[in-house]
């Protein structure tokens, strides 16, 4: 009895483990996403420097740091923050450029995928009707719009 239950648990678990392998991937979901993007990493590092600056400020106010040390350290941290900020901007600019290219490519693709305008050419008299109509504006014959192509 207990042994049977143990086998049942093990079998169910095996199914539970295998189930994700049997599922079908949807577009973009089958690949492991990135943990830390360069932008997020730089932002985080900048936050650390700001935190260091805040600490320095507080310790100075608490009388723990001599004025000359405070000046020097503050300048160092500011320079570090400025460097990180510049790096962030660079990455953002590069990202923006990439995004622009991506957008253009997407737009072109979308354009290509646009279904052509439905055809309202009269099968009887050959008149090209300019608007979606049920009957030909020239001869009055009934029209059936052509099926989408592509």
């Amino acid at each position: 009895m207990e042994l049977g239950i143990t086998f049942l648990i093990a079998g169910s678990l095996a199914l539970f483990v295998m189930l994700p392998l049997l599922s079908r991937d949807q577009e973009g979901q089958g690949v492991l996403p990135v943990d830390v993007t360069p932008t997020a990493d730089l932002k985080r590092r900048r936050l650390v420097v700001y935190e260091n600056l805040q600490d320095l400020e507080f310790e100075y106010k608490a009388g723990k740091i001599a004025p000359e040390d405070y000046e020097a350290l503050r300048n160092n941290y500011r320079a570090e923050a400025a460097g990180l900020m510049a790096a962030s901007l660079e990455v953002e600019r590069a990202d923006a450029g990439e995004a622009l290219i991506e957008r253009e490519v997407a737009a072109r693709r979308a354009e290509r995928r646009q279904p052509p305008a439905p055809d309202y050419r009269c099968p009887k008299c050959g008149f090209e009707n300019p608007l979606p109509v049920k009957f030909c504006g020239e001869c009055g014959a009934a029209l059936r719009p052509a099926k989408k192509k592509g």
């Binding site: 143990t6 648990i9 093990a10 678990l13 095996a14 539970f16 483990v17 295998m18 189930l19 994700p20 392998l21 599922s23 991937d25 979901q29 089958g30 690949v31 492991l32």
Partner: peptide, 27 residues
Amino acid sequence: VGGYLRSLKTVRSAERATLAFFVMITV
């Protein structure tokens, strides 16, 4: 394998194996 192929579903399966390992050791 999941890490090398960057396959999310394989990694999910591996993670579930960790939970299954816990259940069986608990038994």
